[in-house]
């Protein structure tokens, strides 16, 4: 019995070590943790809180500072000739204080959140459109002030996921800058190891016509990668084409098969820091064969060199997703431009 207790204690200890070693970002050889569905969701919440904290300057800027881990940094690569980095709670809080603004002021519009496990935690990227809305007091029209891409490193602290670093890259369609936002790999099946595991095995519901939490997240991640593959297109359309099944069809123009998809993507404007396709309102529904979904698109031509921004087009995508051995992929994707049937009210 005694040896059994020791065996249990040893087993428990080793499990604990395995369970928590992934949270240490300080080790030079930090292992890549397994991200659960809740890890993805909590990181996403962190990313979404950023806008409120910065735009309202709540708690005298400390709501913003407290989104960061203790030693974390924010870098504005667009500030000054070589960018500027802020570190420490007080400096970060000061960044969020800014000008006097209303608690209702909403500016940092964040979407296309891509998250990946990485040594010591996770990395991610998001698009940000920085709007100026409700400037009525100055008689100015609402507009997109500027925008671009955040490049993030996340770390799991005892208080939850926090930014370890966040860098802003202003959108430009021109030549790549140094350092360019890190490219994420091609999407992979979250269910493959290492991937999220459900704490409750029953939530991995294998019933046809139902999706597990991990399926929803993987489909969200698939869709969130789409704008990067198109706007940044680091590999002549390969990343873009790999978001689709081999026999997939995109409309319009009707484009079938990965080779044609890669060619189509490469014909679209792209650049290492280019942010143009902003997605929102992603609805996902299970079907007997997989899933269908839709989301809104607005393509924003963010003004460069102090030029005004404009809205290139908008509408929505209608998708069919298929679960392949590589993970969830687009089987069909159809864009439908926005058209208003009735006069705006």
């Amino acid at each position: 019995m005694k040896s059994m207790r020791i065996a249990i204690a040893t087993a428990a200890l080793s499990v604990l070590v395995v369970g928590f070693s992934g949270t240490s970002a300080q080790q030079p050889t930090s292992p890549t943790p397994v991200l659960t569905a809740l890890d993805y969701l909590e990181i996403e919440q962190l990313v979404y809180r950023y806008g409120y904290a910065l735009d309202t300057g709540a708690d005298n800027g400390f709501a913003y500072a407290d989104l960061y881990a203790d030693d974390a940094t924010f870098t504005g690569t667009n500030q000054g000739p070589s960018g500027r980095t802020y570190q420490g709670r007080e400096r970060l809080a000061a960044l969020a204080r800014g000008g006097k603004r209303s608690p209702n002021f909403m500016s940092h519009w964040v979407t296309n959140v891509v998250i990946e496990p990485a040594p010591g935690g996770a990395v991610g990227k998001t698009y940000v459109g920085i709007f100026d809305i409700g400037n009525g007091g100055n008689g100015a029209k609402s507009r997109v002030d500027h925008g671009g891409i955040y490049n993030d490193v996340y770390v799991k602290t005892p208080q939850g996921w926090r930014f370890k670093s966040r860098s802003f890259f202003e959108s430009t369609s021109g030549a790549p800058v140094q350092p360019p936002p890190a490219m994420l790999g091609t999407p992979r099946a979250l269910s493959a190891s290492p991937g999220p595991q459900s704490p409750n095995p029953e939530s991995r519901n294998p019933n046809p016509g139902r999706l597990a939490a991990e399926d929803y997240i993987e489909i969200q991640q698939l869709v969130a990668r789409y704008p990067y593959a198109l706007d940044q297109n680091p590999d002549e359309g390969l990343s873009y084409a790999n978001l689709f099944t081999p026999d997939a069809v995109f409309r319009q123009p009707r484009t079938e098969g990965r080779q044609n998809l890669a060619r189509m993507a490469s014909g679209a404007p792209h650049g290492a820091k280019y942010a143009r396709h902003f997605l929102a309102n992603h609805v996902i529904e299970a079907t007997p064969d997989g899933a269908v979904g839709k989301q809104y698109l607005v393509a924003v031509d963010i003004g460069e060199s102090a030029q005004p921004s404009s809205i290139f087009l908008g509408g929505h995508y209608e998708d069919v997703y298929a679960k392949t051995p590589e993970g969830w992929r687009f089987k069909t994707r159809t864009f439908i431009a926005s058209a208003t049937a009735t006069e705006a009210k």
Binding site: K100, R101, S102, N104, F105, S107, G134, N138, H146
Partner: peptide
């Protein structure tokens, strides 16, 4: 949304 702190486009990203 109301109360923009920016009179015009000079806010830092």
């Amino acid at each position: 949304s109301e109360g923009s702190p920016r009179p015009r486009r000079e806010a830092e990203a």
